[in-house]
Amino acid sequence: APDLDLLIGADDVLLELALAGAVGWIAGYPNAFPASCAELYHAAVAGDLESALPLYRSLHSLLRWDSKTEFVQSIKLSMDIAGRPGGPVRPPRTPLSGEIEAGVRLATEKAVAEGHH
Rank of each mutant, 00 (worst) to 15 (best):
L59S: 06
L63G: 05
D66W: 00
D80V: 05
M79I: 05
S36L: 04
F71H: 15
L40A: 02
L14M: 07
L96P: 04
W25Q: 05
L62R: 02
S36T: 14
A111F: 03
E50T: 13
A10V: 13
A82G: 06
S51C: 05
S58P: 04
G47Y: 00
E50H: 12
Y29F: 14
N31A: 14
S97E: 15
V13I: 15
P34L: 04
P95C: 01
S97Y: 15
I81W: 01
G83A: 07
G47R: 01
L19V: 04
P91T: 11
W65Y: 12
H42F: 10
R84M: 07
E109I: 05
A32M: 00
A20V: 10
L17C: 13
V89K: 10
L55G: 02
F71M: 13
G103N: 07
I26L: 14
C37W: 01
R64Y: 12
Y41G: 04
A27I: 10
M79R: 15
L40N: 01
A22I: 09
H42R: 12
G24T: 02
G47C: 01
R64W: 10
D66H: 11
G98F: 11
A113R: 11
S97D: 15
L106N: 12
R84K: 12
G83K: 05
F33E: 02
P30K: 04
V45S: 05
K68I: 07
L96K: 09
L49P: 00
A111D: 09
V45I: 15
A27F: 06
Y29K: 06
I26N: 13
P85M: 01
T69G: 10
P85I: 07
V89T: 09
A52R: 04
S36V: 04
L6K: 08
G98P: 04
Y29Q: 12
H117D: 15
E16N: 10
E99C: 04
L6C: 14
D80W: 04
T94Y: 10
A111V: 05
A102L: 10
E70D: 08
E70Q: 11
A46M: 00
R84H: 12
D12I: 04
F33T: 02
Q73S: 14
A10I: 11
L19W: 09
V13T: 11
D80Y: 04
G87K: 09
G9Q: 09
E114R: 13
A18G: 03
G115E: 06
A52W: 02
A32H: 06
G21A: 02
L6F: 15
V104F: 02
P92N: 03
D66R: 03
A111I: 01
P92L: 03
P34F: 05
E39H: 06
G21M: 00
T69N: 11
F33C: 03
R57D: 08
G21H: 02
T108V: 09
E114N: 12
V89G: 08
S78Y: 11
L7K: 10
D48K: 07
L55K: 14
Y41Q: 03
L53V: 13
T69I: 12
L40I: 00
P95D: 00
V104G: 04
K68W: 14
D12C: 15
S67R: 14
S74N: 07
P92M: 05
C37V: 01
V112S: 07
V104W: 02
R64N: 14
L59M: 13
A111L: 05
V45A: 01
D12A: 13
L15R: 09
A20S: 12
G28C: 12
I8K: 00
D66S: 14
P85A: 14
I26Q: 15
S58A: 12
